[in-house]
Design a protein around this nucleic acid. Structure first.
Length: 280
DNA sequence: CTCAGTGTTCAGTG
DNA sequence: TCACTGAACACTGA
């Protein structure tokens, strides 16, 4: 269930597994929800025999660029995951990754399997089928990528440019942080984590933030994203003082962080964990 | 059996 | 048209 840190992590996995390699085979499990109207043959034609030139990402959307157009794009939705087969992964459940099927030895919920000429295999799994995959000429021309705001980690606006993204908006700051057309990559848990450390209540109208709060917010976005990418989005390695460790622990709202109560509300249409004693 | 869930999109409202 | 809200989507696991 990926946000920017998880997507960046799987991009690094793909880079290591497939970078510079030629694709020998692509298997598609037909699924008109995930692949839309594009037939399996079109994906195979675009990828088999091609050499991987670059793995790219903007927000939660990623792509594999070859020595020849088109480029293959993907979005992991709520439950998609990518892994290199034959390697260990320690984060199966928390990332919605799929265990191996006992009978076939292949991942459950397999949607796509890419094999390089050296035998390396990379799988794309998605239990809930909210993920998407498509072909497009290039990342510069792709309609979906064009709609994304700047990447929240690699291209975060500075100073007044950052403030300007929010300052005239009256929606809750959390809802705007999760709006992919403003900044791309922040989802539900990152937004909660960031607002907790920035000491800003999630339901605050964006326009009510002071310039000092905007500065704090920007720095906190960078800190949370940088740290979580640094540990390959492995939440067990997130700092002890992160809200993440508590957010799903007590779903009845009885959970505490330090000496403060964690409250659960719906903000921006999503379950929100926050700490009223800290966030104002 | 019921419900929540690390996301996006679209219909409806003002 | 824009800003915003809430429901729908699909399916597993608790």
């Amino acid at each position: 269930m990926p946000e920017l840190p998880e997507v960046e992590t799987v991009c690094r996995v793909m880079r290591r597994a497939l970078g510079g390699k030629k694709i020998k085979d692509v298997e598609i499990v037909p699924d008109t929800i995930i692949f839309g109207a594009t037939p399996p043959e079109a994906f195979k034609k675009a990828m088999i025999g091609r050499t991987v030139k670059n793995i790219g990402r903007r927000g939660k959307t990623w792509w594999i660029e070859f020595d020849q157009a088109p480029t293959f794009f993907g979005h992991l939705g709520m439950s998609g995951w990518i892994r290199e087969l034959g390697t260990h992964t320690t984060r199966l459940k928390e990332h919605g990754d799929a265990p191996l099927d006992d009978e076939t030895g292949r991942p459950r919920f397999l949607k796509m399997l890419i094999t390089a000429t050296d035998g390396t295999r990379v799988s794309f799994t998605d239990a809930r089928r909210l993920g998407r995959a498509w072909l497009s000429e290039s990342s510069e021309k792709d309609a979906k990528v064009k709609k994304l705001g700047p990447d929240a980690l690699d291209d975060l606006p500075k100073g007044k440019d950052f403030d300007a993204l929010f300052i005239k908006r009256h929606a809750p700051i959390k809802a705007l942080l999760m709006d992919q057309s403003i900044l791309s990559g922040i989802g539900n848990w990152v937004a909660d984590e960031v607002l907790y450390h920035a000491k800003i209540a999630p339901a605050r109208a964006a326009s009510s933030l002071s310039s000092a709060e905007f500065a704090k917010l920007r720095k906190t976005i960078l800190d949370v994203l940088t740290k979580s990418v640094e540990v390959n989005a492995d939440s067990e390695q997130f700092p002890k003082n992160w809200l993440f460790h508590h957010r799903w622990g007590g779903s009845r709202g009885a959970d505490r962080i330090g000496k403060h109560d964690i409250k659960r509300d719906t903000v921006g249409g999503r379950t929100t964990a926050w700490v009223p004693a800290v966030q104002k």
